[in-house]
Design a binder for these strands. Sequence first.
DNA 1: TCCGTCATTATGTATAGACATAATACCGTC
DNA 2: GACGGTATTATGTCTATACATAATGACGGA
Lengths: 229, 229
Amino acid sequence: MMTGWEDVRAEVLRRIRARDWAPGAVIPGEETLAVEFGVARATVNRALRDLAEAGLLERRRKAGTRVALLPVRRATLDIPVIRQEVEARGESYGHRVLARRMEAVPLAVAVRMGVAAGTALLFLETLHLAGGRPFAHEVRWLNPVVVPGGVIPDFDRVSANEWLVQNIAYTTGDIAFSAEAASGEEAAALGLCAGDPVFVTERMTWAAEAPITFVRLLHGPGYRLRTML
Amino acid sequence: MMTGWEDVRAEVLRRIRARDWAPGAVIPGEETLAVEFGVARATVNRALRDLAEAGLLERRRKAGTRVALLPVRRATLDIPVIRQEVEARGESYGHRVLARRMEAVPLAVAVRMGVAAGTALLFLETLHLAGGRPFAHEVRWLNPVVVPGGVIPDFDRVSANEWLVQNIAYTTGDIAFSAEAASGEEAAALGLCAGDPVFVTERMTWAAEAPITFVRLLHGPGYRLRTML
DNA sequence: TCCGTCATTATGTATAGACATAATACCGTC
DNA sequence: GACGGTATTATGTCTATACATAATGACGGA
């Protein structure tokens, strides 16, 4: 029975997979489908919109809805706070602040953050532990200007990661992942050998056009970032 | 003026960021907000649902809507066909099939694919080129059973990646990313030295409970997987 | 033939009203 | 006080209708 927008979505998806509707072809309009399925147009709209958001349909006003020719698969990644990530593995979380000082940002970071080269920002180096063993190495530049009240904690009790999520949360930003060879210092911190491959996450965070923080997070071998399609 | 669900979403987001509504706190109900904003409840619902999908609100029937305590940031990754990815960089795409044969799957792959150990699947090894230079090295096991008509092309003209998207598309699956050291063979294919860090993408694809394909994709240094928050 | 204008059309969104559902909170019983 | 059933309630969804918007395609003038 076709009672709900998820049923409509399932049936539309079935027809796409079964090639009843060929890739690139225009599918019937919402009104037509609504009549066929015996539901309101709004219900069909909800179903088709959902499939369009997933990248399987392409919709344009007046032009209609067509099956995506080369569907770009869209995966959603959850970016948890590191403590949660560790605890989700059933291990105990801990962290050690290795460095915390005001420092002139290197050029590469200044460019990424959109601040003048040589600007002094708070530099933080932290080691995240899972079950007492190194889990991730974090290097962070934090813009002290944007902190409400101007009071920045020492991050001994709450990691910068978690403190930021709770205090400057609801921001925008971008993330990039890559593989690199660990430098001598990085390797030492993570208990690896220099040159070992590390999984690098670089994240830039903004709040209302103001740069908040730039983080570079290193995970040793064995780390996997997972998601469902 | 509060005329559309995006305006409602913007205002709610503003209040969350401004801490008018504290993290963890219950916000007013849909009906209340609808009256306050002068819109229908369905409009408020659309806005709040959108923010909940983004991970900023948590909604439960009867319990109401509350501001997420530790908002898990949700990033959406687009997984394009490799040819598109290369062409988007302004480089010309090409690929070479290095191996194509029926082969018993290794245990690790059999487990991941959910087939009996030793099952013979189609083994493919491909090198993807960008501007004539190695871009990615692909190792793939493909289940020939699921191919419509049973006819599998030689993938000389169209890469398996693209052929699958067009022919067995609209599937489910999962992806994992990691950093590894290149083996001698892998390094040779990509023009690297053994032990160099490579960015590894492993993807398992299913269609209606049947395993379709397992791919292991290696990108050399310099590759970055990017997304917006 | 080319080009700008305008009617057409499919999707996008808003609305009021209704019922469904899940989960809490309350209340009575033991 | 502990327990279990039930009323209450906020969200989830559907419907019918209406208008908004964008983009196409047809038409007509230069």
